[in-house]
Design a binder for these strands. Sequence first.
DNA 1: CCAAAATCCGAGTGAAATACTCTGATTTCA
DNA 2: TGAAATCAGAGTATTTCACTCGGATTTTGG
Lengths: 152, 152
Amino acid sequence: MKVTRKSDYGLRALCTLAQRYNQEPVSIGQLSAEHKIPEPFLEKIMQELREHGLVEATHGRGGGYLLKKRPSAISLREIVHALDGPIALVTCLDPSLKCAIEDGCPTSPVWEIVNQKLEEYLGSLTLSDVMDLTHRPLSGEGDRVSGKVKVS
Amino acid sequence: MKVTRKSDYGLRALCTLAQRYNQEPVSIGQLSAEHKIPEPFLEKIMQELREHGLVEATHGRGGGYLLKKRPSAISLREIVHALDGPIALVTCLDPSLKCAIEDGCPTSPVWEIVNQKLEEYLGSLTLSDVMDLTHRPLSGEGDRVSGKVKVS
DNA sequence: CCAAAATCCGAGTGAAATACTCTGATTTCA
DNA sequence: TGAAATCAGAGTATTTCACTCGGATTTTGG
């Protein structure tokens, strides 16, 4: 039950791009230095994000990556989908496979529900929300609301 | 982002035990035949469930496993915890490890929130709910409520 | 009492997924 | 034209997963 490092690294990089939204492009070198992510690995990640239309790249000297949409229009769900693929909480739910037990599989209905809940929730969180949370971490003051992110 | 087969298999086996709550114990042989789970693997799974107090075993002829609590008192969360360990959506969140980036990790706050949501949700679903869902699958009739399980 | 039926326990293994790396090509701009 | 950047695809090491194996222990029916 894990989000891969790819998704986590990708999200970190996107946070930086969100901060510099509408500014100069940011290179892999800068991003990997800032977040201590291995360069060639991050390169792959950024490529996938580009292929999924979350980011655009400019080549050559002074080049790098830019967000293609505003931070509040990019959901966690999109990011995870781009890097880890659609969420299939259980192997059964992977559309490319078929459940061994054809009829009346006793568990897939629940996993489907949980899966959907998770997708919905990830869909409701945007890059802006992530940045808000980073700058005002959850500590002490009980339940807090920031934007549409409710913790309790 | 997957629940392991262990958790899925464990849940299936527990469904059977829930059906026979307060009856004779059910052996690994019966359980593995019913759900097409490899016997020695299921044996391990049942042992872990016992170690976590979800199930009790009786040895020898006619022996097998029984639920230790009523089905409505066993949550999906407990089951997953017993078999896959506490949910750590991202490696960072695993209490036994430490985040590479000590301060101001830009992503852990979000993952923590999502993690907690997921735990809460799994905690709200019980074995009884799972069984209700199995017998009345979600199809056609739009959003439906069964017990405290809300799908929409 | 003893043999069969069950669980218990610890170690081991094969395959797949994850987390990367490497090499070289291509684009862009100063 | 060459340095700085991305692009593209193949390759590899490590870890996790999904399961196996062998033998000990407990219980009960006959």
